[in-house]
């Protein structure tokens, strides 16, 4: 067994000092404390004042269990049939890819113009503010707004999804660009290269891996948003089928089937993203 381990170091004989502090009051500690405290208080208040519309919560949970059981354990293609659902799924995937491409192209151009280390301060600040406003408006509202002008359909969905993508990718890309080492840019600038030459010869190769990562993250978001727009704006695709199955015909077996399809696609997208990122990182 273990013996007299306490006596290995002689305790130093220091005079009894007053209480030793372990840390000083720092702004960061106080801030964390305050933020967590307020969040908990707000949550407590909200949960105790939550309107449940007179629903018996325990019964509702029982109902939910039944629904989930139908969805996940007994999925089937329902009245729409597999071919129709697959077609709707394909069009939603296509929609998300298309809007990601638009978002990436415009996002990159705006990002270059908005990055602090590349352009003049006013243009940059202007773009950043505009993009912050565009980003603040949820995708679904963009889609609804455009559907008033262009009518309900693909164009409204494409524009609505693209707007948010552009704003999101502008921010993400320009953060990558701002992270570039100054010397990389300067070394080409001193050769007298033109602005866009510097962009495509120095900046692009340096950050291409991170651009690819962000673009695929956005693709996954766009897929989710495309479903949402299809459901809430009636813009078609698998989102609309999902909305009809779960909110109009209440066929939860079909809902489950659609959810499984969606999950399958997101897994596939994640897998492809990982593979392509590997290719770009290894080069």
């Amino acid at each position: 067994m273990i013996n007299s381990e306490e006596n290995i170091i002689q305790k130093p004989k220091t005079p009894r000092s007053p209480q030793i502090k372990l840390h000083e009051q720092s702004l960061s500690r106080t801030m964390i404390f305050i933020v967590f405290g307020s969040l908990i208080l707000i949550t407590g208040y909200t949960l105790t004042h939550l309107d449940t519309a007179g629903v018996h919560v325990d019964e509702a949970f029982k109902g939910l269990a039944i629904t989930l059981n139908q969805m996940f354990l007994q999925p089937n293609a329902g009245s729409d049939g597999v071919p129709l659902l697959l077609q709707a799924l394909a069009s939603t995937v296509m929609l998300s890819i298309l809007t990601t491409i638009i978002g990436a192209v415009f996002g990159f151009l705006f990002a270059v113009l908005a990055s602090k280390n590349l352009t003049n301060a006013y243009l940059g600040a202007g773009i950043r503010v505009a993009m912050a406003i565009v980003r603040a408006i949820p995708t679904i509202i963009w889609a609804l707004i455009f559907s008033i002008v262009c009518g309900l359909g693909t164009t409204a969905a494409v524009l609505g999804l693209s707007f948010h993508s552009i704003a999101y990718l502008t921010k993400a890309y320009s953060e990558s660009i701002e992270g570039i080492d100054k010397s990389t840019i300067e070394s080409l600038k001193v050769t007298g290269a033109k602005f866009w030459v510097v962009v495509f010869q120095a900046i692009w190769p340096t950050i291409v891996a991170s651009l690819v990562s962000w673009t695929f993250i956005r693709l996954e978001i766009n897929f989710a948003n495309a479903i949402a727009v299809g459901a809430a704006a009636g813009a078609g695709g698998i989102g609309y089928q999902l909305f009809v199955a779960s909110g109009m015909s209440f066929d939860f077996h079909e809902t489950g089937f659609i959810v499984y399809l969606v999950i399958l696609v997101t897994f596939a997208l994640e897998f492809i993203a990982v593979k392509i990122r590997q290719i770009y990182l290894n080069r």
């Binding site: 305790k11 130093p12 220091t14 000092s17 030793i20 372990l22």
Partner: peptide, 12 residues
Amino acid sequence: RYTQEEKEEAMS
């Protein structure tokens, strides 16, 4: 929670 002795030893 550390004792006063522990804190003093840490300081020394």
